[in-house]
Design a protein around this nucleic acid. Sequence first.
DNA 1: CTCATTTGACCGTA
DNA 2: TACGGTCAAATGAG
Length: 342
Amino acid sequence: MESGWCWEPQTLIAELVQGMELARQLRAHLNATSSVESRDELLQRILASYERALLILNWGGSMGQPQNVGVSAGVPESPISINGSSRSDEFDGGFKDSQGYNEASKKRKTTPRWTDHVRVSPENGLEGPHDDGYSWRKYGQKDILGAKYPRSYYRCTYRNTKNCWATKQVQRSDEDPNIFEITYRGTHTCAHGNQSIPSPSSPEKQEKKQKNTNNNYQQQQSQQALYNFQNSLKVITEDLDNKEMVSPFSFPSAYGCSKNVSSYSPSFISPATPEPTHYSVSPFQMNNFVGAHNLQHLESDFTEIISTNTSATNSPIVDLDFSLDQVELDPNFPLNTPGFFS
DNA sequence: CTCATTTGACCGTA
DNA sequence: TACGGTCAAATGAG
């Protein structure tokens, strides 16, 4: 939608490479006695770099997928063009042991958590919450102390059938009602089943009756690859007490290569609050959040958490174990596949 | 009829 | 005890 952006694979790769290079620098800073500020700056540059890469992917995808493009004219059920979100993923510590991670029901506190900030563009209509490609079921709503808007609680639709314990919380920002803060908890273990992405012509709700009927396999693959990619590229920061994972990638960003249809639930926030349909990117907004994080000890447990997180996604397509020692683009990553850039 | 949402109650934690 | 998170019965939509 608000594209008009000229993008090309080289640009994307350049951004990614830059991000890696910055990560290297950051690593050097970690070993040295550099100031927190310089680390912070480096980290923000890394995030910005990946964010730009993501935007490229997003727009690239939306431009390349003819179906449902342009259905942005405020039709409530129209596919949402998720233009991503400002990525301010914060990772709430915890999931140290990869095993306990799968048992989300046991220890909620140990599940990975990261926050996504999604901005809606007011001129584009009011509803249709951000669809990250997963199927969510709302299970609660609470008024939060000090918050103007209630918080909505969602869990994976396939919680029971697939034992998928991913949840998310959606809260409208106090300061800017156009911004929604989405906190994800846990990762989907149903991602490879029926879970992935609603087919363009079928609203999400149809999923309940047509599981596994998405026949656009290539598209799925690309999306999954991107999803895995973004899931793999997480930067861990460690708080004094907790670890945090800061990811420049957002779930919605992973669908740039295809159209998201979202029938989503109409209860994104609360009946009293208008529901955003279209999302625009606020690329650097994440700095507001990430910048506030304690960036010390950035590296500790980095690879451990990465691998944990990666394995949790069951990703057979891309294996991007992203570590600071190994920051080369995986040649297997289908950056050049047609479904990706076109 | 099936499934999603709503919403008050309940529970665990700080 | 207050608050955030979850449960589950009631209700509604398709």
